[in-house]
Design a protein around this nucleic acid. Sequence first.
DNA 1: GCGACCTATTTTGAATGCAAACTTACCTGT
DNA 2: ACAGGTAAGTTTGCATTCAAAATAGGTCGC
Lengths: 231, 231
Amino acid sequence: MLHEDVVSQLRNILVEGEVPPGARIPERDLCVRLHVSRTPLREALKVLAAEGLVLLLPNRGARAAKLTSKDVHDLFEVCQGLEGLAGELACERISDSGIDAVAKAHKAMVQHYRDGNLLQYYVYNRMIHEAIVDAAGNPALSQLYESVTARIRRARYVTPMTPPRWAVAVQEHDAILNALQRRDGIGLAHILRAHLRHKREEVTRAGFAEAEHQNVTQSSSPANHRGADIA
Amino acid sequence: MLHEDVVSQLRNILVEGEVPPGARIPERDLCVRLHVSRTPLREALKVLAAEGLVLLLPNRGARAAKLTSKDVHDLFEVCQGLEGLAGELACERISDSGIDAVAKAHKAMVQHYRDGNLLQYYVYNRMIHEAIVDAAGNPALSQLYESVTARIRRARYVTPMTPPRWAVAVQEHDAILNALQRRDGIGLAHILRAHLRHKREEVTRAGFAEAEHQNVTQSSSPANHRGADIA
DNA sequence: GCGACCTATTTTGAATGCAAACTTACCTGT
DNA sequence: ACAGGTAAGTTTGCATTCAAAATAGGTCGC
């Protein structure tokens, strides 16, 4: 289905920050770029608006969503709930080979930490969290988790990682793996929540919620009716 | 925005079961009924498909989603996680007047229980749960909760309520109100989760997950390529 | 009489068209 | 020169149109 492709391509463009938060999304340009007409593109925009990645302004088109720090806080909070639940369930349901897979990813992640390779570290980090969530065996949960994390991914990765915080994160991941291997659901849930709470504190402290308000609402100054543009 | 109206009207039609689960959603008929052309209607269908209320079959149109009992189980599980989280947060953040409002709704609900008025009981029941979730002060959480509960609402309300189960549910609600008044977040979370677990057991036991499979996938018999239709 | 094949109609998916709203640029008057 | 107003040009929202796919119906053959 054409429409599905457009949704996922657009989602990538937004999550990667290629269209920066708050920037206008030019329908016509994206049509030529994605080689589709306006109809499927607009359908995709509606879907992404429902997901919270896009803001639709009546008669004024679409903008990439801009998260306030409250938004970031709220989304992390939800994420804590979802990951905590996933951790509990995963300990009941994950297979031994599933645990091994997480352990392998953990080792690779730690190696990238030692190498100071933040980008690859993030790749395996995300892989671990997704593996745990998927191990809960609950597709509805996985889907919601994916949707929520997509919205904060950019804020997370844009926040600079300090060495002490990085060390703590790796330690927490040791504890995560340990709890999973012991199949200690309650313990895993607690560690995952703390882990996310720390990440949230880091992100909000850095103030990398792109801005405080969606400065896109009606403004009295005619010159600045529009937020940032791509250029 | 016209499109938004269509989404919410269609959502009602689906949640109320007016188009029964598994039934084909006739674009043309809905267009005349909602007084819109196919474009906004189809946009709405895409949004609802992303929400999980609609199933989109390539070149075969849309169908009202049909939940397997696994789906119901999974969605209840997610709901438990979200309500548990909301309960914890609500105890920290709810105002005294907010607690009073819940207490009032609780009283009304109990009265409808005594009157044997199941419909009104459900109204206040839902009001209480939503009030607690909203009291968490986390719009992202409220929105996710709303979306998840919408998907299982029909399965819940279609399941016949037995007198003993109803009595237990009311007792649990007493405990819910009590924990909220004591602002016992952990306790409230536990009760809410247990409450939902019981409801899930009741629903799944009754087998009111509309069917076991989306019998909509490719079938070899040409005569039954389609599932149930509205008529 | 039953089933396979072929054609007509309906339905879907996407592109295009059109009116309304919004932007932008210019122009006028002070 | 600048503020306000106006008209041209975009952009948006929705309706309509068009091609492709699916469905339904009828015909022919066995």
